[in-house]
C-alpha cells in the first residue's frame, strides 16, 4: 500500500453566506495523479487551495506528508515548500527573470546561496525545456513558456505533491500541449499530483483517479474510464456529455 501524501477530512469552507465546500474528503497516495473536474463554482479550486492553506478551511483537517497544516504550531511557510502550486494565470514575478522567479524561494526560504540556488534553478528550467530562457523576463515569454517557468518555480523546491489549478485554461490552444507535456514528464518521474482542469484527454491518458465535484461535494469518483464512459450519477453524466459536446 502506497504512502498517503495528502489526507483531507471533512473540509468545509464558507465565504460569508456561501457554503462552497460541504464536507469533502480527499486522499492522495504517493505517485498518484488525481484529477478534479466539475462545473465552475463547484468548489474544486477552493478544495485545491485548502490543501496548501491559501484558503483557510472553515472546518475539517488537512495533513500533507504527515504535517497537520491546520495545527497552529505548524510552520506553514516551511510546510508550503513541500506543496508546489501552479496557477491558472501563471503569477510569475514580472520584475524578475525566469531564473530569478525559480530561485527566489530557494534563496529566501530554503536558505540556499545564490550559486546553489542558480544551479538548482537552471536544472529545474531544463526539466521544463526552458534552459535557454533563464535570463528572459516573463514579458518576453509566451503563455506556455510562462506556465512552464511557473512549474519550474514549484518543482525547484522538490515538493512532495504538486497542485495544478486549471494550468492550461489561460493558454492559447496551440500552447496547451507543451504544458501538458511537462506535466506528463512529471508524472513519469513519479510526482504526486492533484489537477483541477478541463483537459479531458489528458485526464483519460494520465489520471489514476477522477473526482467529479458539484455544489461543494464529491459526487462521484473512480478511474477515468469509469467516470467518462459509465458515470453512475445523473449529474456526472450531464456534465461529461456537456463537456464532450464542445
Amino acid at each position: 500500500m502506497a504512502k498517503t501524501i495528502v489526507e483531507a477530512r471533512g473540509l468545509h469552507k464558507h465565504f460569508g453566506a456561501l457554503h462552497v465546500l460541504k464536507g469533502v474528503d480527499l486522499d492522495v497516495a504517493e505517485r498518484e495523479l488525481v484529477f478534479v473536474i466539475g462545473p465552475s463554482g463547484s468548489g474544486k479550486s477552493t478544495l485545491l487551495r485548502c490543501l496548501n492553506r491559501l484558503e483557510e478551511p472553515s472546518a475539517g483537517s488537512v495533513v500533507v506528508d504527515g504535517i497537520d497544516l491546520l495545527d497552529p504550531k505548524t510552520d506553514i511557510n516551511h510546510a508550503r515548500q513541500r506543496i508546489g502550486m501552479v496557477f491558472q494565470s501563471f503569477n510569475l514575478y514580472p520584475h524578475m527573470t525566469a531564473l530569478g522567479n525559480v530561485t527566489l524561494a530557494l534563496r529566501k526560504v530554503a536558505g540556499k546561496s545564490r550559486a546553489e540556488a542558480d544551479a538548482i534553478g537552471r536544472k529545474a528550467l531544463e526539466r521544463v525545456g526552458l534552459a535557454d530562457r533563464a535570463d528572459h523576463t516573463p514579458g518576453q515569454l509566451s503563455g506556455g513558456q510562462q506556465q512552464r517557468v511557473a512549474i519550474a518555480r514549484a518543482i525547484a523546491l522538490e515538493p512532495r505533491v504538486m497542485l495544478f489549478d486549471e494550468p492550461t485554461s489561460a493558454l492559447d490552444p496551440e500552447l496547451v500541449g507543451s504544458v501538458l507535456g511537462v506535466m506528463r514528464d512529471l508524472r513519469a518521474d513519479g510526482m504526486t499530483m492533484v489537477v483541477v482542469s478541463h483537459e479531458m484527454g489528458f485526464a483519460r491518458a494520465a489520471a489514476d483517479r477522477v473526482l467529479f465535484m458539484d455544489h461543494g461535494v464529491v459526487v462521484e469518483e473512480g478511474p477515468p474510464a469509469a467516470i467518462f464512459e459509465n458515470p453512475t450519477q445523473d449529474r456526472t453524466r450531464a456534465f461529461i456529455s456537456q463537456i464532450q459536446r464542445h
Binding site: N77, A79, R80, P94
Partner: peptide, 24 residues
C-alpha cells in the same frame, strides 16, 4: 496572484512584501 504565488512557495508575509510586492 503575486502574493499567492510567493506565499505558496513558502515566503512569509514580510518576505513577499519586500521581494515581490514592493519592487513592483
Amino acid at each position: 496572484g503575486q502574493w499567492e504565488a510567493s506565499r505558496s512557495t513558502g515566503l512569509s508575509y514580510g518576505q513577499t512584501l519586500m521581494n515581490v510586492v514592493l519592487p513592483q
